[in-house]
Design a binder for these strands. Structure first.
Length: 469
DNA sequence: TGCTCTGACCGCACTATTTA
DNA sequence: TAAATAGTGCGGTCAGAGCA
């Protein structure tokens, strides 16, 4: 360690350090007597950075540490104060010396230190404490002496026992790359193989997962995966599910928030698989047929430009006007919206992937496409239906409401049915309850005023709700 | 004056322990 | 179980002391 700066002029030495603050501090530094050690030690506790420290602390320490250190030193020099018994003993030796005197270990003290060092380069806290007393130095000075001595003999001194060897780390890294969540069997095998404790192995994986929270897939992909789970079981609560976490990279907490929001939005949804598949195929325009009353409802969606969270008054009106089950219609709207949202997610993923391919290195893209389309080709080399490209180009069958088209004007409070003037003639008059607010009119007015497309607004809100950060 | 030695420091990595 | 905290080691560097 000592020889690393050999041959380098002191004038140049400072420029090597990358941190300007450190340079400033070091250049200003004045050698101080060892009575400042206890102070210094205390400061170092504040300054030290490392894993587990919050960013706020990091910034604070970075901004204030230099100032604090300089202040502490200034104080020590000016007042020549020592604050510990340890320091007091030092100060007796140094007090009358000039400032630029660095306390050295005497030959005798070095011999004491060397004796212990030869025994163990990593003395225990007790040993260090005793050495500090024996050599009339601070514990920190003893620490540094051992630190420097080990650095001086690097290569001859073995690393601290208990630390993982390069081979152990390499093997752990290799396994981690293949599986972030090893099962008990894998852990046991690793324990036997690299001779670490089960706790050490488990902790390694936990820490690696924490330090490398690389999302396995995009937000859209994750959302799509989770919605599939939600469709299967709206009461899904296995947020620690290793398979799911492996797929998404999401934490337990984030997943639980997501599912909770989905439940708030869609309730305890239990959509029949056949119904789900039918809707999916229909909305993807893979088929134009819908079974049972779904076809009737879909026609109503078209006719009234219905969306999720439609005004209850409108549903009531349709129920009366079209002679259908309003509850079933509302349920259909919810199911339809859910499937539509999932398809939107899937399509977003495809768009992102295609963009990635466009902007990627041409060679990589070429290879990626080869792989990508490999599984899409039939044996005869023809591309199957609904390849990524096809799916992307097919617009989903959302609401027929055009971008700037207003929702149908239904104002029961004023008994106005603007889109159906003739039919409305026979509608029984509506008597609003005291204090009733006409929500549908309000909604339309707001939409006009803000130029907001109601369906888009729903999607944005849902998205914002799901992905709160 | 230039070189070497060495005490001191920084930033980061790593581990064990504690806390929520 | 994840996150926070404390303690310690490592590699690199600075800079005063001391010597030729």
């Amino acid at each position: 360690m000592a020889n690393r700066s050999i041959g380098k002029s002191r004038k140049d030495a400072g420029s090597i350090d990358g941190t300007s603050k450190a340079i400033n501090w070091k250049r200003k530094r004045t050698t101080y007597s060892s009575e400042s050690e206890s102070e210094e030690g205390a400061q170092v506790q504040i300054v030290k950075l490392g894993p587990g420290r919050s960013r706020r602390n990091d910034i604070l320490t970075q901004e204030t540490s230099i100032k604090k250190r300089n202040e502490s030193r200034t104080m020590v020099f000016e007042k020549n104060i020592s604050s510990s018994s340890e320091a007091e003993s030092d100060s007796e030796v140094v007090e009358n010396k000039p400032k630029n005197v660095r306390k050295r270990f005497s030959d005798k003290q070095v011999q004491v230190l060397l004796a212990v060092f030869n025994e163990t380069p990593f003395p225990t806290k007790e040993q260090r404490k005793k050495l500090a007393e024996d050599t009339d130095h601070s514990i920190r000075q003893v620490d540094r002496w051992f630190d420097n001595r080990r650095a001086h003999n690097r290569g001859m001194v073995q690393s601290r026992p208990g630390r993982k060897t390069k081979e152990q780390k390499s093997r752990l890294k290799e396994v981690f790359a293949g599986n972030r969540y090893p099962d008990e069997k894998t852990v046991a095998a690793l324990v036997a193989e690299i001779e670490l404790s089960k706790v050490q192995v488990k902790q390694y994986f936990a820490k690696q997962r924490f330090d490398n929270p690389i999302p396995v897939c995009s937000e859209e992909e994750t959302k799509s995966i989770l919605m599939e789970y939600f469709q299967e079981d709206s009461n899904f609560h296995d947020h620690g599910n290793p398979e799911l976490r492996e797929k998404t990279g999401w934490s337990r907490l984030r997943m639980s928030i997501f599912f909770e929001n989905l439940r708030n939005e869609y309730g305890n949804m239990k959509m029949d698989k056949t119904r789900y598949d039918s809707l999916k195929a229909f909305l993807k325009k893979e088929t134009s047929l819908l079974p049972n009353e779904m076809e009737t409802f879909e026609k109503l969606v078209e006719k009234y430009c219905l969306n999720l969270h439609e005004d209850p008054d409108l549903i009531l009106y349709i129920e009366w006007k079209e002679n259908v089950d309003g509850d079933a219609l509302a349920q259909y709207l919810m199911d339809r919206s859910f499937v539509l949202e999932m398809l939107e997610n899937q399509r977003a993923i495809e768009v992102v992937e295609q963009e990635k391919a466009v902007f990627a290195d041409p060679n990589d893209a070429e290879n990626a496409n080869m792989l990508e389309f490999d599984h899409m080709n039939d044996d005869d080399g023809t591309v199957r239906e609904n390849s990524q490209q096809d799916v992307k180009d097919i617009p989903l069958l959302g609401s027929s409401r055009e971008e700037n088209q207003k929702p149908p004007m239904v104002n029961r409070a004023q008994n106005k049915f603007d889109d159906f003037p003739e039919e409305a003639k026979n509608v029984p008059l509506f008597a609003p309850a005291p204090g009733h607010r006409d929500q549908s009119q309000e909604q339309v007015e707001n939409a006009e005023e803000n130029d907001v497309k109601p369906h888009r607004e729903d999607c944005d809100r849902i998205q914002a709700q799901y992905f709160r950060k």
